[in-house]
Design a protein around this nucleic acid. Structure first.
Lengths: 210, 210
DNA sequence: CCATATATTGACAGAGACTCCTATTTAGGA
DNA sequence: TCCTAAATAGGAGTCTCTGTCAATATATGG
């Protein structure tokens, strides 16, 4: 009960709004579950990995797993990328038209991403491509993304978010990005995933003429 | 074993390539399952209707249900609309650019559809909008549609289906259609679903300027 | 009309995702 | 130290979906 460690932690000079032990433990548990899940999915496949396997690897009970993630899918779905991208889009100069602004935002986000996040992204991208349930779920999330994108474009151009023109632009952008993701033979894009999306938006910029 | 009915059926003068009793029975069973399923989904909700409920209503065993439809989702998914639309697209004059050709194809298909099919379409559309699993599954099907669409556009314009420009056009078309389907408040579009999609493609025709 | 090959069917047994409930443990505060 | 609220483990149970099995129905050849 009385050790050097005690003194050290006691003297910590007001860590700015430290979340408290309970919160820290929760964050650690969540991260552990997610990490072990992705590791097992990669190693043995998604369908071949049960929630029980993940729970055991992360040293929690199955019920605890479901406390942190509503479904098995959600372990993969959780995405830090989307909100960052959309925030970046919001911060682009309003002079740019929507497609160009999106291109700039993507360029910025990909550039600023550290190596670990990049790997995570590719890892999850491979799962999305491979596992039908996850792919379907991702597509459904993209539906929400179209709505958010429309709202941002509306802000930037001073129109209503419900405006059909605004919605069509948002839909076309997402559609173009999907089409870049969609390779012929299911082979993974690797790091060039960004390059393909950039070129797709470039095509969109210069109109849809063939 | 010997009745008037026997004589009648025996004398039927060579129905052209009549599928045989077995086939006809299968088609009837399939239709019955699907009809009762949609009826129950509408009445009690998708999740609240079990496969067993459907099987009992259609007077088959649960195992028979799964023989006809791989999953519960597939009862709703089966779509006669897509192939018809794509066939129509293929038959449009090659002078039209892809977006205009798609518009023409949709106009033709919606015009030629009979009332019953139209109702079925709206019925299923409502389910897609409402039930997350089905919506996600539909979006995943749309992914395949983008590929097929790209292939058709490639044929019409004499390019490779893998060409990024072709894929982007296909993606943008589907994206625009999705954005029209995506209403603000989850309210159903009703019969105007066609009108919204037509206007969305019209916007796409005139470029993406806002 | 009969015999054999093939298909369809229903019953049953599980696996696995997920829910609900309860007893126990733990963190944070009085 | 004690109390309360939250987190957890564990168990029972539901539902979808996958198999296997034997019984039945159908198509076809003799």
């Amino acid at each position: 009960m009385s050790s050097g460690a005690d003194a050290r932690t006691a003297h910590r000079p007001s860590a700015p709004a430290r979340p408290g032990l309970r919160e820290r433990k929760k964050a650690k548990t969540r991260a552990a579950i997610q990490r072990h899940a992705l590791r097992l999915f990669k190693k043995r496949g998604y369908d071949e990995t049960t929630v029980e396997d993940i729970a055991e690897a992360a040293e929690v009970s199955p019920s605890t797993f479901f406390r942190y993630f509503p479904t098995k899918e959600d372990v993969v779905m959780y995405d830090v990328f989307d909100p960052v991208l959309l925030a970046s889009l919001r911060s682009q100069p309003h002079g740019l038209d929507p497609v160009r602004a999106m291109r700039a935002a993507m360029r910025q986000v990909f550039r600023d991403m550290d190596e670990e996040d990049r790997e995570d992204l590719l890892e999850r991208e491979a799962l999305f491509r491979l596992v039908p349930d996850l792919r379907a779920r991702m597509m459904d999330e993209l539906l929400r993304t179209v709505s958010v994108l429309a709202r941002i474009i509306a802000e930037r151009t001073g129109r209503r978010a419900g405006d059909l023109g605004v919605r069509v632009v948002a839909g076309a952008i997402i559609g173009a990005l999907i089409s870049a993701w969609l390779t012929e033979e299911g082979e993974s894009l690797g790091v060039d995933i960004y390059r393909g999306m950039d070129r797709a938006l470039e095509k969109l910029e210069s109109g849809l003429s063939l």
